[in-house]
Write a protein that binds this DNA or RNA. Structure first.
Length: 250
DNA sequence: AACCAAAACAACCGCAGTCGT
DNA sequence: GACGACTGCGGTTGTTTTGGT
């Protein structure tokens, strides 16, 4: 089974994407929808491999992506899920639909890993839940958490965000892309971590909370409850939950 | 102001799984 | 069932930015 050569053909461009390339890609996806990445460079004339196009879309151009600093809540969830699932970044990202797996992975490698090591030394435990508690409540361990990153969004990030905005109308009107459109609404809805609408539309991994648990999550947005459902042994009626319209979840 | 080191981020590489023929 | 094409994912690298001296 030979692996197809990718990204090493002559004439294939590598490196940072330009706003022009982004626009071409977004326009194409706006017309055809995401998927069939093989045909994207062929049909758009982009000198990029299909993989690169997919990555660019999923990590940057896809509407609903939240840029900037991670909140303590998000940090807690990441730490918790990482302890639970290991380096399953895609699985972890499915619980934070506004974040990409790449983002979470980078954040883990550059921030959280170091922070955890510090915390482990400070509080003298390797218990991920104690560490999570310390992360969410900095006073717990007397650790000053950096709440704002010095460069939460770059100029270029802003431009891609603008491109994403171009898609808003299309996403809203497209029944095929409910995930993206709901995510877009969420993006504009402030700092809420996960809303029920989003939960209904994202693809859910095997262990998901019951609808009752979800309602409480929605109400409290507390990690305490997140912990509860995260460690629920998967007895929740996942399929049924997926079928429920969002307004029945509260 | 200039230089260097560290941090942060974006993108690429390659493996593995899935799907179609 | 075998094979090839395609996609998804995790690890890694390269580049840019920031902070310190």
């Amino acid at each position: 089974m030979g692996r197809p050569p990718c990204c090493d053909k002559p004439g294939i461009k590598k490196g940072p994407w330009t706003p022009e390339e982004d626009l071409i890609l977004v326009s194409y996806i706006q017309e055809h929808g995401p998927g069939n990445w093989r045909s994207v460079p062929i049909n758009t004339g982009l000198l990029r491999c299909s993989k690169s196009c997919r990555l660019r879309w999923t990590n940057y151009l896809r509407p609903g992506i939240k840029r900037g600093s991670f909140t303590p809540h998000e940090e807690g969830i990441i730490i918790h899920l990482q302890a639970l699932l290991g380096n399953k970044w895609a699985a972890i990202a499915s619980y934070l639909p506004q974040r990409t797996d790449n983002d979470i992975k980078n954040y883990w490698n550059t921030h959280l890993k170091k922070k955890l090591i510090k915390l482990q030394e400070t509080i003298g435990t390797h218990d991920p839940f104690a560490i999570e508690a310390a992360t969410v409540n900095p006073e717990f361990a007397g650790v000053q958490l950096q709440q704002q990153h010095p460069h939460s969004s770059s100029t270029y990030a802003s431009s891609t965000d603008n491109i994403s905005r171009l898609l808003e109308g299309w996403m809203r009107s497209s029944e095929k892309n409910t995930m993206q459109s709901s995510a877009m609404d969420i993006r504009n809805s402030g700092d809420s971590l996960i809303c029920h609408e989003e939960f209904c539309s994202v693809k859910l991994p095997e262990m998901m909370p019951s609808s009752a648990a979800m309602a409480e999550v929605e109400q409290n947005r507390s990690l305490t409850f997140l912990e509860k459902w995260l460690f629920d042994d998967g007895t929740g009626q996942v399929d049924g939950f997926l079928e429920l319209p969002s307004d029945q979840l509260i």
